[in-house]
Design a protein around this nucleic acid. Structure first.
Lengths: 127, 127
DNA sequence: GTACAAGTTAGAGTCGACTAGAAGTCAAGA
DNA sequence: TCTTGACTTCTAGTCGACTCTAACTTGTAC
């Protein structure tokens, strides 16, 4: 059980940003202490790390909301919601995202090869 | 020799954006026609395509400015500027960027594997 | 019981990256 | 010559993603 400032230190996101993410629905509503302060679990921290990776790769917060839906699917399943439907929808979303990531990887590899080509040209010029 | 709207169609950037990029120094100052209209070369178009790739990968316009410096180094060399210095600086910048791209690639691969793991779990749950 | 650190909300401000509007210039065709 | 369309600059507005302020509450230490 972690406070917002502990999560801030671990994830590199400020408390402002963590509250903002919750407000706009990128993160689920946190559990609260008796006094009303947010408390986080280790799982939430690792989910935030996952979102950070996606942000680094250029994903928008709107797109990440879909991942939040994905992130809370296990709870929903445990609460006995329409397992078939919910799960199949989430699987579709994940497959779509996976395809995007693979495309991004290919583009990245192409950009790396372009950059290497440039570097070779400059090395050739400089000697 | 291309007009701004032709470059817009080819690159997917609006004329507004092309002028904006020039204004803030992401693109070099374009050559002009007698009437004062911007004219672009094929090389500039392919440089813009390259910048688009970097944008897709989450690079900021500020970071891209360094690439502009890189993009115009060949001209500078042709104009007989301090070849050794300029070129070596640019080579350093390219090496740095290449390292960043490689890091990004590793992160992307890790994210892909995480996503695949999730997918496997959901597939297991849904059957 | 009072001070103080760390949390809370609502709402305003900032910054990067566009995006659009207004007003004017230029070249080509009726 | 006049209109039309595509360009020009300058300036202002928008939008996403934070970031901060103000005013308030809670929990602990003295």
């Amino acid at each position: 059980m972690l406070t917002i400032s502990q999560v801030s230190k671990r994830t590199g996101l400020t408390p402002y940003t963590l509250r903002y993410y919750e407000k706009i629905g990128v993160l689920p509503e946190s559990n609260r202490s008796d006094g009303g302060a947010r408390i986080y679990t280790e799982e939430e921290v690792s989910f935030i790390h996952f979102l950070n990776r996606l942000k680094q790769l250029g994903m928008s917060l709107d797109e990440m909301k879909e991942y939040f839906c994905d992130g809370c699917v296990l709870e929903k399943v445990q609460q006995g919601e329409d397992i078939e439907d919910t799960l199949n929808k989430r699987i579709d979303i994940l497959i779509k995202h996976l395809a995007e990531l693979e495309t991004k990887k290919q583009e990245l590899e192409y950009t790396i090869s372009l950059t290497k080509d440039k570097l070779a040209i400059y090395h050739h010029l400089s000697k």
